[in-house]
Amino acid sequence: MAERTGPELTGEVALVTGAGRGFGRAIAERLASEGAAVALMSRSRGELDTVVDAIASAGGRAVAVTGDVTKADAVSAAVEAAEAALGPLTLFVNNAGVPGPFGPLWTVDPEDWWRSQEVHIRAPMLFLNRILPGMVERDRGRIIVVSAVASRMVAANLSAYCTGKIAQNRLVEEAAAELADTAVKIFAIDPGFVFTQLARDTMESPDAQKWLGGMVDRLREKEGEEPADLARCAQRCVDLASGRYDALSGRYMELPDDIDAWRAEALEEATS
């Protein structure tokens, strides 16, 4: 990889989904602060325009693209718009997510449950299918899937979310195996915890209050806390986007994980 000058991600072109607020916004703004040109995607144009303005005010470059991440035509149109405005994508952050539905499998609406899987599984698959051909052809690119600690938990009455996040991690592992002979890398991360709108939606859901009372109580306790994990998560994305941790492609990682130690171990194994 050529040596960089200036900000860490100068010359990179990123697309971030769910970028209008919360973790998605923090990631997009941090990538832009490090020199990446960033396309922001969600269904709400108003939120995206606010983030675009904030990035521009800080001296960065960003565009807004709207669409439903579960629809193939919308995904293709978003990628085309992003690349027309900024150039070929070199980074993709799959951040869009939904918290519910909540409750036992025999009480939730199967259609609601399946719509959750469309956001968590179909959406990243659509983006990978659309973006990877160009990245593989150029032999350059990095992808970060924002998973969750729920991916390694069995949490009663939270099956839609846990199943979707487990599947995301396996999708990353499969993609990494298929990309092994290329310079394209992919990672899954837990972003940490911040009281975002998604957390508020969960806390205010009658079904969550009924079936996940303990979790709702913990969310109430977290409301108003300093959102330190926003910055930590955004920095983790910058680190992975930089190329320094390419040896960890396919891995799922959480904020407390010592990825420098993991990298050293992976490099040692590769040369032994």
Rank of each mutant, 00 (worst) to 15 (best):
A85K: 04
E118N: 11
Q197I: 01
M41R: 14
M125Q: 09
V154Y: 15
Y252M: 01
G224M: 09
T271K: 15
E226K: 15
H120P: 10
E265N: 09
N95A: 01
S57H: 11
G60T: 06
G250S: 03
A199R: 14
R220L: 02
A64L: 13
R21W: 12
F193K: 05
D258I: 10
V238N: 06
V194G: 00
A176L: 04
V154H: 12
R220A: 01
A150C: 05
G20D: 06
L230C: 00
F195H: 12
A156P: 15
M125T: 11
Y252W: 15
E111N: 03
R25S: 10
A231M: 05
T182A: 00
E80I: 00
A247S: 08
D181V: 00
D229Q: 09
R21V: 04
V136Q: 10
A180V: 03
G103D: 10
D260K: 14
P124T: 00
P191I: 03
P110G: 02
S249E: 08
L255Q: 11
V216T: 04
V16W: 13
G213D: 09
S57M: 04
P191K: 07
R140F: 08
A167K: 03
I55R: 11
L255H: 13
K210D: 01
G141D: 07
G46R: 14
Y245V: 04
W211P: 03
L240C: 01
A160C: 07
L219F: 08
E226L: 08
A228T: 13
R140S: 10
A247W: 09
L240H: 06
V63L: 02
A74D: 15
V52L: 01
D217R: 09
S42D: 08
V238K: 05
T70H: 11
V65S: 08
L248H: 10
A270Y: 13
A56C: 04
Y245R: 06
G164W: 15
Y245C: 04
